[in-house]
Every structure is written in C-alpha cells, then in structure tokens.
Design a binder for these strands. Structure first.
Lengths: 219, 219
DNA sequence: TTATATTGTATATTTTTTATACAATAATTT
DNA sequence: AAATTATTGTATAAAAAATATACAATATAA
C-alpha cells in the first residue's frame, strides 16, 4: 500500500483522496488525484465501492489535527464556515490500482510529509475509515484476480512465469506449486510465449511471456 | 425487472430512483426509495456500482418530456433555475435486489402511471443510461450468486430443491441437470432439510428446505 | 391395483486439480 | 572440458470434483 503521511503535527496517514470536479468524470477524478498525489499515471484503476454512511465525517480526525496544530492553523483563516463544511458527511468512491513497486517513484506533494510503501501487515494508523476501505479493496481484488491480472500494470511488458506467480502469491496471500501454477496460468489462454531470458544465473533460462494483444479488431 | 412508467405523456420508463437525504446513509436511502416507489421493504439490497460520468445528465430525457407535456408543466412553476439544477451532472449509486415475484405486490405512486414486471428480454425503452445500469447489475449478480443466494429474499421461508434450481436457471440463464444441481447446492452447506411437502400432485413429494439459521452466536 | 410423473440416491464416467518424478539447461566450479 | 548446481519445462500419476446415467421410491390419478 502506498500511503502518504499528512504534513501536520501528529501521525495522520490517509489514502490519497480529493474532490470530484463539477465537470469531471468520477473515473477521471480518481486518475487525477492518484497522479497529483503519487505521480502515478496511465494505469488501470478499479472502482470497488461507495462509502457513504450518514455519520461518515472527518470530524473526529479534524478535531484531533486542529488540536495538535493550533499555531499553524491560526495563521490561515480557517473560519467556522469552512470547519462546518469539512465536517459534513463525506461520500467517497473507492478505487484501487496495482503497480510494479519497482517501476514507480512516488512523489509527495505539499500536502504530505512523506509517502511510503507499507505492507498489508504493517499498515500505519489510518484516519477515519481508511483501514476498512483498504480491507474491502483487498477482498474485492482477491476475488477478481484472474480477470484483472492483465488489466493492471502488475508486470513489465515481458515477464517470466515466476514473476506472475509472485504477483499471485502476494495478492492472494498463499503459495502455489510451481508446476501446477504454470499449467493453470497458461490455460487462461491470455499469455503468449516469447524467447528465453538469459539472466546470467547458473540455471536453465526461463521463457519470457507477454499478454496477447487481444482480439481488438475481431469485432 | 420491476419498472415504473412515469406519469407523463410519452413513454418514459425509469428505474426507481431518488435523492439521498442530508442525514441519511446511502444504504438507507436505497431502502427508502425502493419502499416508496414499489412497496417492497425489509429486503437485502446490494450496491454494485456508481455511475458518474461528467456528461451523465437528465437533459435529453427532460427536454423530450417537457416537449410532450408543455401544457401540464406550465401550470407548475418550473422555472429556469429548477431546470438548470435538474440537468446538471447526476451521480447515481446503483443497487439491486431480488424478490419472489409472487410475494410482492408492487405499489405505484403518484409519480408513476404504472409499475410492471418485465423480463430481461423485453425491457421497455429506458431513459438515460438505465438500460446500461440494468445490464451491469445482472453481470454482477451472475458472478456472485452462490454467495448471495441466501442474502436475497429469492425464496419463501421454506422451499423445494426445484424452486432453488428455478432461481439459478433464471438468474444464470442456463439449465442444470437436476441430480447434480441438488448435490451441488447441498454441498454449499447452507440448507437444512425439513419435512416433505405434499402438493396433491401425482408424484413423490419433495422435501422442503430452509436456510440454516447461521452461526450468529458462534463468535 | 396399476399407471404416471417426479423425487432421492447411488454409481459410473469424465474432467479438473493437485502431487510427484525427471530430463533439460545456463552458468559455475573443478 | 567435464562435473556440479540451481532452476525450468514437461510428463504423468493420484486425488478430487464435476457431470452423466441408472433406478428404486412414492404421491396421487385412473
């Protein structure tokens, strides 16, 4: 999980989030916010749920933040009207994406003190219901991995079967028997085999694969 | 599909829909709107997607409706401000439910000229993107039926295996071999067998089943 | 009592999944 | 150059699941 820490006193971690513009698709807004907050773009984002309970507000989080940052906030004109607006019920549309952690350099913005990768096992203390949102995203992803594996930018342009297996094991949190995993993935019928990859390692070189350029012109 | 026809000149069918109150959960709003427009309540509703493209507006639909109903609408004070508001981008959260068609008596409201059941094959001309919304709901339901069969009020309190099979065949649009279907469903481990049901038909009486009262107190 | 339609269960067959064995091979070491 | 090592690709065996088939049981009507 790529999670920014807010640029305020106190330990506040929050999923990258923002507002939908008046003339902006919700999907576009999700892409924009991800890009602005993390530098990540041109990626497949999946909407998974709306969070909109009547009592879903920033109030508890904001009160704690304001208490810890009274000095700085006094300078700016954070008036009562603005406070009232920000503590209204917020409705959030959740999206998730998957990226190759090595191919992305997260960019922090002025809003953020830092932006770091966290494993699911060691998430920091998230504001509001953001931890619940993460849990629900994971559940959704796990039940759709086979359909989604090539929509996400999980893998480089070409890759070995071992890399595919590592993605599956990371997402599903379990191990696979190598030989059967290979058969299963090839049976999905979405990969094509390329030449071999010589890494310099002292063992048989694995084949490279890529996703078939799908039947885009078949219909 | 239970679809109301709008109480205006012209043929406008629209999914039951409405607004979320300021102090209302989105889930609550969905329940309320369903109840108000159809009389159906105490039912499991499943949220499946948000529809919110920037150009998703009622304008085309409203213009056609106003054109056909100029006389009636002139009486009411439908001013420019109201028109502008109603033709803004609308964001809709889609929900679906499943009900036993025989156990529900749809209630039309003043908004509606009629409310009727339609098969998926013979849907009327829906306004806006409502036909797309229906298609997406069906796809979602088909891929989750096993998990959802007992959440929905698809079946009476007690029911026969044949009734379960009919639900599956209707939703998934395919047939099952009776003997294997029975084995599959019983293997899900969620049904318990009751006494037999004597219908008066000239054949062996089938067992009744009900969903196990789940392990609500087990944790 | 016999006939009819449908149900419940057993079992055979096929397919899929999982486990195991082993040859192939790209470098490294001897 | 041959032996060694680590890993890969493929074949196949074993187990499990899905599917097809057979048939006895039974609630009522004829």
């Amino acid at each position: 999980m790529l999670i920014p820490k807010l640029n305020f006193k106190g330990d506040f971690w929050a999923l990258p989030s923002g507002f939908v513009g008046q003339n902006e698709d919700i999907d576009q807004a999700a892409e924009r916010i991800l890009r602005e907050r993390t530098g990540i773009q041109d990626i497949y984002l999946e909407q998974f749920r709306v969070f909109g309970k009547a009592d879903r507000s920033n109030k508890a989080f904001l009160d704690e933040l304001i208490g810890l940052n009274a000095a700085q906030l006094a300078v700016k004109n954070t008036d009562q009207q603005e406070y009232d607006w920000f503590t209204k019920r917020f409705i959030s549309v959740g999206y998730y994406a998957l990226v190759d952690i090595n191919r992305v350099v997260p960019q922090k913005t002025d809003l953020d003190e830092s932006i770091e990768w966290y494993s699911l096992q060691t998430l920091p203390r998230m504001i509001m219901d953001h931890a619940d949102i993460i849990a629900e995203a994971l559940t959704t992803l796990q039940s759709h991995l086979d359909e989604k594996i090539n929509a996400f930018n999980l893998l480089p342009e070409t890759f070995t079967m071992k890399e595919v297996q590592e993605v599956y094991e990371a997402v599903l949190g379990k191990t696979f028997v190598r030989t059967n995993f290979q058969k299963m993935i090839l049976n999905l019928g979405v990969l094509e085999r390329l030449e071999k990859k010589f890494t310099g390692a002292a063992n048989k070189a694995p084949y490279l694969y890529q996703f078939k350029k799908q039947l885009l012109f078949a219909f």
